[in-house]
């Protein structure tokens, strides 16, 4: 009970500190924008730890953060192998293939107005469907190993990237196209010098959406069958053994991988579309 009381105290303290900081004079500074959410996150972790210990929550319901951290540190080789299998091979492999295929299709479609008008609604429709459900089919076709996971990822990322790229390539104004005409520029000249750069913010929007989808696809596809390695496999196997500390450790890996992947694409975006109003500060 003491620990529960401490937990409540920690929560109040964390909130009080954050309130002071958020209403303080330097709230707009970069450091504060970072510090406040970090304090909030740390408070949650601490309260979680104290409550789990104080109420003696059994491991099979909710393991304490310290236990998860312990498990994480103790299982690094397994986690790394799972990470390589699911993220580097399945998700990243599928992401690269899927995005490249979507991009190539977008360029093909772009030359025909008829195709574009037909494909955009169909693509938008398909992008909203629960495509992850194709996993059992693709597992059946490509086997249990990472190839089938990559195939699921390809299908999942294809439509969002395609739709965004096609939309982006049409972002130029009538004036910009007229200007290219006055230079008597050819198709590829105006493609590379005008339309592709102008499309970049849209393309990156699609690429960013696709990072999360890639991870979801690779992990969920493993629920339909996988070799004895991989994050999705480990999660479902550990859930079966009620080893929830391992499940949480995998979720930590998934969270880190997801943020890292997204952050990486966002960084490239910043470098490529530095000129866009949303990137200038």
């Amino acid at each position: 009970m003491i620990l529960v009381g401490v937990a409540l105290l920690v929560w109040g303290l964390g909130w009080w500190v954050n309130t002071r900081l958020a209403e303080g004079p330097r709230a707009q500074s970069r450091a504060m924008q970072l510090l406040v959410p970090v304090i909030f996150g740390a408070t949650i972790l601490l309260v979680w730890e104290l409550l789990v210990r104080g109420l003696q929550v059994p491991l099979v319901i909710l393991p304490a953060p310290s236990l998860i951290a312990q498990r994480f540190a103790g299982s690094l080789p397994i986690l790394w192998a799972d990470f390589v299998q699911t993220i580097l091979k399945g998700a990243l492999g599928g992401y690269v293939i899927g995005c490249a295929a979507a991009f190539a299709t977008a360029i093909l479609v772009d030359r025909s107005d008829f195709l574009r008008r037909g494909l955009l609604p169909v693509g938008n429709f398909l992008a909203a469907l629960p495509i992850v459900g194709t996993a059992p089919i693709l597992v059946m076709w490509f086997g249990f190993d990472w190839h089938s996971k990559a195939a699921v990822v390809v299908v999942m990322v294809f439509f969002p990237v395609l739709v965004n790229t096609v939309a982006g390539l049409n972002e130029t104004s009538a004036m910009q196209r007229d200007q290219m005409r006055t230079y008597a520029a050819g198709y590829w000249q105006s493609f590379f010098k005008l339309r592709l750069p102008a499309a970049m913010p849209f393309i990156f929007n699609g690429l960013k959406i696709a990072t999360t989808l890639a991870l979801v696809g690779a992990i969920v596809a493993e629920f339909f069958g996988s070799p004895t390695v991989g994050m999705g496999f480990r999660i479902s196997a550990s859930v079966g053994q009620l080893a929830l500390d391992m499940v949480w450790a995998e979720i930590v890996v998934a969270a880190l991988a997801g943020s890292l992947f997204y952050g990486l694409v966002a960084m490239i975006e910043k470098a490529v579309t530095f000129w866009h109003p949303s990137q200038r500060s």
Binding site: S173, M175, Q176, D178, Q179, T182, P197, A198, W275, H276
Partner: peptide
């Protein structure tokens, strides 16, 4: 050479 009403410079 043609000059349009807006400068239309490429921001990139």
């Amino acid at each position: 050479g043609y000059v349009f009403q807006a400068a239309g410079l490429y921001p990139w």
